Simulated scan of single mutants.
Amino acid sequence: MKWNEITSIEQALHLKQTQPEAFAQMLKEADLSFDYLAGSSLYLFQKRGMFRNNTDTAMLGQFMEIRKGETVLDIGTNNGALLLYASLQGAGSCIGVEIQEEACELAAFNLQLHQIDARILAGDIKDVSGIKADVIVSNPPYFPAPDARVKPTSRQIARHEFYLDLETLIQCISELIAENGRCYIVHRADRICDLVALLQQHSMEIKRMQFVYDEAKADARSVIIEAKRHAKSGCRVVKPIILTR
């Protein structure tokens, strides 16, 4: 059997348990891994050569709060992990936008395995219109793009601002979010001033914030925020996360 012939997550887990060698060989041939989402009982397929779920993905997935039936838009959905987290909280309509076509196919496959009704749109978020999401989530590229003359790899596109910088992300969120909607973003802690300024510029206020520290370093490495459209000022800074080695 080939990996894309699997029709449910239960079937994948059954194969993993009853035919471990054949399952491992199938993954090796497709350059895939089969991993669980931290803090959940969900599994998903990931491409080894592409951006893979990391600590930031898990922290954002567990930080965001989704109400039953809400429309959730994931900008830069990659393999669909954040939409899987949203589904655990009862999200209604799930929409993912991803510029890398191979990642789109994998996201759609992962969501289908879990019987989650989702739309995965292949393309640039700047070209998306006609959506008003109750909640927008994003684990965006963090780093400035290197020399543009060098063709980026899949992993570089996910980590560097070749196609999506922070200002463009906030602009797109402001255009696609519903009135009084919320967004959840994880980013580098040293970009917090930019986050605050850009969100306020687009009529959004940070309502909840959590810093993430590496126990071996004095400065925060990441920040996770919840911002709400047309909200009054006032932000809760919740207990930080300390990552241990």
Rank of each mutant, 00 (worst) to 15 (best):
H14Q: 06
L15V: 09
L15P: 08
Q17R: 15
T18Y: 04
T18F: 02
Q19D: 05
Q19C: 02
A22Q: 05
F23E: 01
K28F: 00
L32A: 06
D35C: 02
L37C: 12
L37H: 13
A38D: 14
S40T: 15
L42A: 13
L42K: 02
Y43T: 00
F45E: 00
Q46S: 14
Q46N: 12
R48M: 14
M50V: 11
M50W: 08
F51C: 15
F51P: 11
F51I: 14
F51W: 11
R52G: 11
R52I: 14
N54T: 07
A58I: 04
L60T: 12
E65L: 14
K68L: 04
E70G: 01
V72N: 08
L73T: 08
L73E: 10
I75V: 09
I75F: 06
G76R: 04
G76L: 03
N78M: 05
N78F: 03
N79K: 02
N79G: 08
G80C: 12
G80L: 07
A81V: 00
L82P: 02
L82T: 00
L83A: 08
Y85T: 03
S87C: 09
G90M: 10
A91H: 07
A91Q: 12
S93Q: 13
C94I: 11
C94R: 02
V97Q: 03
I99N: 04
I99K: 09
E102T: 14
A103W: 13
A103Q: 15
E105T: 02
L106F: 06
A107F: 04
A107G: 05
A108C: 01
A108L: 02
A108T: 06
F109T: 01
L111F: 15
L111E: 02
Q115P: 08
D117A: 15
D117R: 14
A122G: 04
G123M: 06
G123D: 05
G123Q: 05
D124W: 04
D124T: 04
